[in-house]
Write a protein that binds this DNA or RNA. Structure first.
Length: 766
RNA sequence: GCGAGAGUGGCGGAACAGGCAGACGCGCAGGAUUUAGGAUCCUGUGGGGCAACCCGUGGGAGUUCAAGUCUCCCCUCUCGCACCA
């Protein structure tokens, strides 16, 4: 029962500062939002994207978390057993930078911010179950991040290889793709370069098709975000075709979506880093030129590539390939417009029918041959590639075949002849999870010269992140952890010989790919409490920013599918309903310190109170255009009810009491403090959060009179009050009896009458 | 360039399923109260017109008794991806 008495001084004046903190304390004291696993009610898991503790809460947090909180509170009142948890995404680079700048431990900085954010959450009335709160930088949590990684490794889903990564020469660290904006480091603005490091990967691309198919089972996701994910995964259908190399044993496999243009392949192109590229020039007079070229390509920053207007740079290897469909000998080039990571890292170039190949062929003077002709008119492919439909020419047995219908026919033929196979490729790459940073979860692997990559025994977890004297990054491209030799040097678990720990830490998106499982049983002596996970998951609702469309929201789906496949869970989509909030705009642009338009939730709450901040956020506009939650219309309806109650001078005290009671209950999800205060003052016992949502009585809603709109030829001419159960004949009679209506049909013939009982009559006149 | 979404008063934005466009709020105007300002309350508020009426949901066509809503073309803006073969 509520122990807080109404404060006398706040009776005539709205004084949020007097009301709100008292209730916040009270709710915490009685643990009002504690979720239970033994409830007979249906469960409802209301999940919010957990915050990164980079400082206090900002307006984006206020909006997103208020949205989630309204849903949680509403579901609670509708009789659900609600789980509404909170935690912190507590690893990340800003903590390291703060440590270097302020000479404090990253942990100190992080925990201070978490405390501040937790205080702010309580102050704005979030209905969190605080007993389940955790931080990803706590060894009790990251122990299981490491454990899950080992499960991935065990299942063959994790591997290590050397690869070109984004490198910021100023911050001396690797950057994730999402931290590179227009070729520059998101934080310091320095042009990013590529460097080669060995990195750990998860085989996300193996799950491309499942991630694509799974989207069809997510009706509670907006089409917008599903489209973004489909484009990101980027499925392409086509064929793999093998070209042999003249005078050598090796061959080149290419992927093409246009096998119908095979006869127009006049040269081939390998990515500069393609292993065969070096092999082809090795020991030839071109080797030196190639080495120089490769250096130049690698040194090019992203900025250079964009600034040069995507000018393609290439080099003839001197070798010749044989086109399997016509036996032609064609030159093999190396050029930077072909990407090693996509397809096979090599292409057949069809300059007559591909923009990029055409541009390169004209630049280098390579031959161009037309093999697709438009059905009408003609195109000079020597000056402009033709990429549209048409029919095949100069294509041996396929001459005259219409296309794109010819594509499957050519693939069938290639398979019969043993020259190629039907193939599907995806744009989605494997996920590089290595970061050369200190403040992250250590990767639990040991590198041994003899045994290679040896996992740390699961029983030895966690591999604790050691304290350092100096967190500064180095030019070496190694994590600061590499300097901690007494931590790095270990004995190999396999051979007992000398070995080294992996010094990279996980991308923090690894932590956030599974945190939502942990809420089900945050103290479990396992990665999660299996029984509780099966009870609460999948989450019924997920709230967070659409900025995570191609990152977190794919990573976590991927994780869930792998956990399903290794038998840890029974389902394979983590959250079938997703709500993406928009950005908080001030004066036409996003709020930021640098724009000087930053308003903090703290200022708003301090001046106007938390309820006011919440309701303003919800009323300002739609949370997201595509989803059915229209908080602003909900508030508009409550305003109408308030106006009705204020105007109802004749109503009995009992009726007024009932109306106000309903209003207060419906206000609770949005403005929990004032509604609780008013609930108490109405003389009602307990917490409004525990009250039932008001139920409308259809018998009372039923109206006996409605406004009938009368149109003449589609234009509104009169509005007449009529009984709700009026019949069509009577409607027509009443319409024709109207002077205003008669004035418009006078002297004309009514040729048609459309009647929608009981609200509309349309008399069509000629 | 490719893909997706959005254009409604001075502003934020409503409009279930094709059936009264502009809910609700902000702002503004007039009035009440007040020494004044602020706050509060009442009334009005898409444009034109004294009025009857006419016009009006980015522009243009179309379907329909009826279009903000459906179809086609165009314009503008936002977002996502961007040498992905």
């Amino acid at each position: 029962m509520a122990k807080v008495a109404p404060s006398e001084d706040a009776i005539d004046r709205y004084d949020p500062a007097a009301i709100e903190p008292r209730w916040a304390d009270e709710w915490e004291r009685v643990d009002l939002y504690r979720a239970r696993e033994d409830s007979p009610k249906p469960k409802y898991y209301c999940l919010d994207m957990f915050p990164y503790p980079s400082g206090d809460l900002h307006m984006g947090h206020l909006e997103a978390f208020t949205g989630g909180d309204v849903i949680a509170r509403y579901k609670w009142m509708r009789g659900f057993n609600v789980l509404h948890p909170i935690g912190w995404d507590a690893f990340g680079l800003p903590a390291e930078n703060a440590a270097i700048a302020r000479r404090i431990h990253p942990k100190e900085w992080t925990y201070a911010n978490i405390e501040q954010q937790a205080r702010s959450f309580k102050r704005i009335g979030m209905s969190f179950d605080w007993s389940r709160n955790f931080n990803t930088c706590d060894p009790d949590f990251y122990r299981w991040t490491q454990w899950l990684f080992l499960k991935f490794h065990e299942a063959g889903m994790a591997y290590r290889r050397s690869v070109a990564v984004n490198w910021c020469p100023h911050d001396k660290t690797v950057l994730a793709n999402e931290q590179v904006v227009n070729g520059r480091c998101e934080r310091c603005g320095t042009a990013v370069t590529k460097r080669n490091f060995p990195s750990w990967f998860l085989r996300e691309s193996d799950y491309a098709q499942r991630l694509l198919d799974g989207l069809d089972e997510l009706p509670g996701w907006s089409d917008h975000i599903k489209t973004i994910q489909r484009n990101w995964i980027g499925r392409s259908e086509g064929a793999d075709v093998v070209f042999t190399i003249d005078g050598r044993d090796e061959s080149i496999e290419v992927f093409t979506t246009r096998p119908d243009t095979l006869w127009g392949a006049t040269f081939m192109v390998l990515a500069p880093e393609h292993p065969l590229a070096h092999a082809l020039v090795h020991g030839t007079p071109r080797e030196a030129a190639f080495a120089e070229y490769l250096e130049r390509v690698k040194a090019r920053t992203e900025i250079d590539r964009l600034a040069l207007g995507k000018r393609k740079e290439g080099l003839d290897s001197g070798a010749r390939a044989i086109n399997p469909v016509n036996g032609e000998h064609i030159p093999i080039w190396v050029a930077d417009y072909v990407l090693l990571e996509y397809g096979t890292g090599a292409i057949m170039a069809v300059p007559a029918h591909d923009e990029r190949d055409g541009e390169f062929a004209r630049q280098e003077g390579l031959p161009i041959r037309e093999v697709i002709r438009p059905k009408e008119g003609a195109v000079d492919v020597q000056s402009e590639p033709y990429v549209g439909d048409g029919f095949m020419v100069n294509s041996g047995p396929f001459d005259g075949t219409p296309t794109p219908g010819g594509i499957p026919k050519v693939i069938d033929w290639l398979e019969e002849q043993g020259l190629g196979t039907r193939s599907v490729r995806y744009r989605l790459r494997d996920w590089n999870i290595s970061r050369q940073r200190y403040w992250g979860c250590p990767i639990p692997m040991i590198l041994c010269d003899k045994d290679g990559e040896v996992p740390v025994a699961m029983g030895e977890l966690p591999v604790l992140l050691p304290d350092l004297e100096d967190y500064s990054p180095t030019d070496s491209g190694q994590s600061p952890l590499a300097k901690k030799t007494d931590w790095v040097n270990v004995t190999c678990p396999a051979c007992g010989g000398p070995a080294r720990r992996e010094t990279d830490t996980f991308d923090t998106f690894v932590d956030s790919s599974w945190y939502f499982f942990r809420y089900a049983g945050p103290t479990a002596e396992a990665w999660a409490d299996r029984e509780k996970v099966e009870y609460w998951m999948p989450a019924d609702h997920y709230t967070g920013g659409i900025t995570h469309a191609t990152g977190h929201l794919i990573y976590s789906r991927f994780f869930t599918k792998v956990l399903h496949d290794v038998g840890l869970i029974s389902f394979d989509e983590p959250y079938p309903e997703l709500l993406n909030q928009g950005m908080v705009i001030m004066g036409g642009s996003a709020m930021s310190k640098s724009r000087g338009n930053l308003v903090t939730p703290g200022e708003i709450v301090g001046r106007y109170g938390a309820d006011c901040a919440r309701v303003t956020m919800l009323f300002a506009g739609p949370f997201e255009a595509d989803v059915d939650w229209r908080f602003n219309t909900a508030i508009a309806k409550l305003m109408m009810l308030t106006n009705e109650i204020a105007d109802a001078r004749d109503a009995s005290d009992a009726d007024l009491g009932e109306a106000v009671g309903a209003l207060v209950r419906m206000l609770n999800p949005m403005a929990p403090f004032i509604s609780q205060e008013l609930w108490l003052r109405l003389g009602t016992e307990g917490y409004v959060q525990r009250a039932d949502w008001p139920v409308a009585d259809p018998a009372l809603i039923k109206v006996d009179h409605v406004t009938m709109v009368v149109q003449v030829s589609g234009k509104v001419r009169d509005k007449i009050d009529v009984p709700a159960d009026i019949g069509e004949e009577q409607m027509k009679e009443r319409a024709l009896a109207s002077d205003k209506v008669r004035a418009h049909i006078d002297g004309r013939e009514v040729v048609k009458t459309v009647i929608v009982p009981p609200k509309l009559v349309n008399l069509v006149v000629r």
